[in-house]
Lab assay of single mutants.
Amino acid sequence: TETREFDNEEEARKEAERLRRKGQDVQIRKKGNRWELRRT
């Protein structure tokens, strides 16, 4: 599992969408005042 953190939700969602188009399974969750993007 690979995780990346983003400062805002929009960036996290854009990156998640990009990875999903490549066929990756991605989850986003709020972590304090940041957003965590998890690739499984």
Rank of each mutant, 00 (worst) to 15 (best):
E2N: 10
E2H: 13
E2A: 12
E2D: 11
T3H: 09
T3G: 09
T3M: 11
T3Y: 13
T3C: 15
T3I: 14
T3L: 13
R4I: 14
R4G: 05
E5H: 10
E5T: 12
E5M: 14
F6L: 01
F6T: 01
D7I: 06
D7C: 13
D7A: 08
D7F: 06
N8M: 04
N8K: 05
N8C: 08
N8Q: 04
N8A: 03
E9T: 01
E9H: 07
E10D: 11
E10L: 10
E10K: 08
E10M: 09
E10A: 11
E10T: 09
E10V: 08
E11P: 02
A12H: 00
A12D: 00
A12E: 00
A12K: 00
R13F: 12
R13E: 11
R13W: 11
R13M: 13
R13T: 10
K14S: 10
K14H: 10
K14M: 12
K14Y: 10
K14L: 11
E15M: 08
E15D: 03
E15A: 08
A16I: 03
A16L: 10
A16N: 01
A16M: 12
E17N: 09
E17L: 07
E17A: 11
E17G: 06
E17Q: 08
R18V: 08
R18I: 09
R18M: 08
L19Q: 05
R20Q: 08
R20G: 05
R20W: 08
R21V: 09
R21T: 11
R21Y: 05
R21C: 14
R21A: 14
G23R: 01
G23S: 02
G23T: 01
G23E: 01
G23H: 04
G23D: 04
G23Q: 02
G23I: 00
Q24C: 14
Q24P: 01
Q24V: 15
D25H: 14
D25Q: 13
D25G: 07
V26I: 09
V26Y: 09
V26D: 01
Q27K: 07
Q27D: 09
Q27T: 13
Q27Y: 10
I28M: 05
I28A: 03
I28T: 02
I28N: 01
I28Y: 02
R29C: 14
R29N: 09
R29Q: 11
R29I: 14
R29M: 12
R29P: 02
R29V: 15
K30I: 03
K30A: 06
K30L: 03
K31Q: 07
K31N: 13
K31M: 07
K31S: 09
G32V: 00
G32E: 06
N33S: 05
N33Y: 02
N33W: 01
R34C: 13
R34S: 06
R34A: 05
R34G: 09
R34E: 06
W35H: 04
W35P: 13
W35D: 08
W35G: 07
E36N: 00
E36G: 00
E36W: 03
E36H: 02
L37P: 12
L37K: 06
L37W: 01
L37Q: 06
L37A: 04
L37M: 04
L37T: 11
R38F: 15
R38L: 15
R38T: 15
R38G: 13
R39I: 15
T40V: 14
T40K: 09
